[in-house]
């Protein structure tokens, strides 16, 4: 942001972190099977927050709970001052409209073209004309590298492209909070690097808070401001904080193994 009078540059460079998502004593269960317990973390406004952990430990499920698609067994979730768990469905719906979500499988509406997918929320929640909607949809698609695919149906593009189109839909309404479930899974290294840059760009220009579920170590270190590490065996979070700092400081062998891809020599070097 180059203009000197914007709100952002008017603030001191080291802004005081402002809590945006607050999770307290969250327990998540499928029936009697407790998947996660004792989750406590805070996501600050405008940061990229990484949710990591082994496959099947419950990252996608945690996202579903944060989005109200699944009720937690116990615990509370606040978005700013808004008590999400206690709120009625209408208030929740209003809150959800400020979110953008990319699902693990893309979840594009298969009966609509890419432009219609991206344009649907614009048509429902803005006063834009249909030509303008089309323009915005094209812009969002070109941001994820899908210029020219406006009139394709989801079944006519590859899995990685579906992922990117899903991201375009998630950012259609310039959301306050963006939830991304494994955005770079299935993408080649270069595209996934471009995606990382796009995520940082969204954070910086829109000031969006971004929650990313990912296994991709390169992404974790490149974009993560803060993180939480879920462990499947102990059914709770066992670490948190800035991923780069975590790699240097953590004493927990499970976290270390994950952050070094289980590579023994790197673990030794790191612990030296």
């Amino acid at each position: 942001m180059s203009e000197p009078d914007t709100v952002d540059s008017a603030q001191p460079p080291a802004r005081r972190p402002q809590p945006h998502i607050i999770v307290r004593d969250l327990t998540i269960a499928y029936g009697d099977f407790v998947l996660m317990r004792g989750l406590n973390f805070v996501v600050n406004r405008g940061e990229v927050f990484i949710v990591m952990g082994g496959s099947g430990c419950g990252k996608s499920t945690l996202l579903r709970v944060l989005l109200g698609l699944k009720e937690p067994a116990t615990g509370e979730i606040f978005y700013g001052d808004f008590n999400f768990i206690r709120a009625d469905s209408e208030a929740r719906e209003r809150q959800l409209r400020r979110f953008g979500v990319l699902y693990q499988g893309g979840a594009l509406w298969s009966s609509m073209t890419l432009a219609e997918n991206v344009g649907l929320p614009l048509g429902e929640f803005t006063d834009l004309s249909s030509a303008e909607i089309r323009e915005v949809a094209s812009l969002k698609l070109s941001l994820v590298g899908l210029k020219g695919f406006e009139d394709y149906y989801p079944s006519q593009i590859s899995g990685g492209m579906q992922k990117r189109a899903g991201l375009a839909r998630a950012i259609a309404l310039d959301p306050e909070v963006l939830f991304l479930d494994e955005p770079s899974a299935g993408l080649d290294p270069i595209t996934s690097r471009l995606l990382d840059e796009l995520i940082l760009e969204i954070r910086d220009t829109l000031g969006a808070t971004i929650v990313v579920v990912t296994h991709e170590l390169a992404s974790i270190f490149a974009i993560g401001d803060n993180s939480v590490f879920l462990d499947a065996d102990s059914h709770t979070m066992i670490a948190g904080g800035n991923p780069r700092a975590m790699l240097e400081k953590t004493a927990d062998p499970r976290v270390r193994r994950f952050l070094t891809r289980g590579d023994q020599s790197e673990q030794d070097r790191a612990s030296r």
Partner: peptide, 17 residues
């Protein structure tokens, strides 16, 4: 099928009932 592919979830979280 929309349930399986999470298309219904995508509607819900977009605030579309």
């Amino acid at each position: 099928t929309m349930k399986v592919t999470q298309e219904i979830d995508a509607l819900t979280t977009m605030g579309l009932d």
